[in-house]
Amino acid sequence: MDVTTLAVALIGVAGTLGGTLGGAALSQRASRAEAREQSLRTDRQREQERAEQAVQAKRDLYALLNTTARAYRIACRDVVEASARGEVLDPSLLDAAKEAWAEQYSLAQMTLAGDVLDVASSLNRSLGVGYSVVKQLPSGSDRQAAYRRATAWFMGPLSDGVYLLRVALRQDLGVEAEVEAEFERWRLEAVTALDSARNSLARQLEAERRPVNGSVDLP
């Protein structure tokens, strides 16, 4: 074999090896790129699933918060109406409704946005005053006036407060049709009205708890 023939042969072998090695390198790079893309797709899918789970957990919490608020108000109202008829309801029903609301409200405090928390906090204080109304129902001659006042509270301001909470929760979840600016104005007005009514009722209850003519309540 002459020098020219040998050179051509060596060039051919080198070209074959180069092509094989180059193809292998390209294949490896393509595999790594595909693996990275698959990893990114998996991360995006997991992130989407976590986001969906978080939204669902929020919806579930809000649903329970709304449900327990309504149940607590209704339980108080039922006690008032039953008492007005001379009936006695199982007190554990009211206490269970009170505890259920307290549990959900405690959980929601860690999740609620500031404006929604303002609504829930106002309602929480209002429900507390409602509980005091029930516990202070008199048995004397002025009982009918007290029942009318209690019924007006549970069917009026407190009912409006529960409705306000529901709308605020729906607004926060993005399912309420209210325009945000309009909702914010209405929310502030509604919270102010609820706070005013609650404070007025709380002052009346406090005055009725005070000793009369300087007398002292015995323990």
Rank of each mutant, 00 (worst) to 15 (best):
Y105Q: 14
W186C: 01
E37R: 15
G18R: 08
L112P: 09
S39Q: 15
S139D: 11
R185K: 14
E34D: 11
A190M: 10
V216R: 10
S215Q: 11
S159L: 04
G161N: 04
V8A: 11
E208I: 02
V119K: 06
R77V: 00
Y72P: 09
L94Q: 06
V8N: 10
Q28W: 09
V162N: 06
G19H: 07
A69K: 08
V179I: 15
V119S: 10
L188Y: 03
N213K: 12
W186R: 15
A108F: 12
T4C: 01
A14K: 11
A71R: 14
G23Y: 07
A108H: 12
A63L: 13
E47L: 09
V216A: 05
E184Y: 03
R166E: 09
R46D: 02
S196N: 07
S122T: 14
E184Q: 15
S141K: 15
V13D: 01
R185H: 05
A33G: 01
R209W: 00
R73P: 04
G22M: 02
D195H: 02
M155D: 07
E34S: 13
L112W: 13
F183C: 04
D60Q: 14
R77T: 01
A102L: 12
G86K: 07
T5C: 02
R210Y: 00
P91D: 04
A152P: 04
T68K: 09
A57N: 11
S141H: 08
L201Q: 02
G12Q: 09
D78W: 01
V162C: 10
E81H: 05
E182H: 14
R170F: 01
V88W: 01
K98M: 04
R143A: 10
R46K: 08
R125P: 03
M110G: 03
M110V: 12
D43Q: 13
V55T: 11
N124W: 06
E103W: 09
N66C: 06
S126C: 06
V129G: 00
Q136L: 06
L194R: 05
G15T: 12
A181R: 15
R166I: 00
P219S: 05
G214M: 03
L117M: 11
E184A: 12
R125H: 12
E87M: 13
R36K: 15
Q109K: 15
L89M: 09
E34F: 04
P211K: 03
A14D: 04
P211H: 03
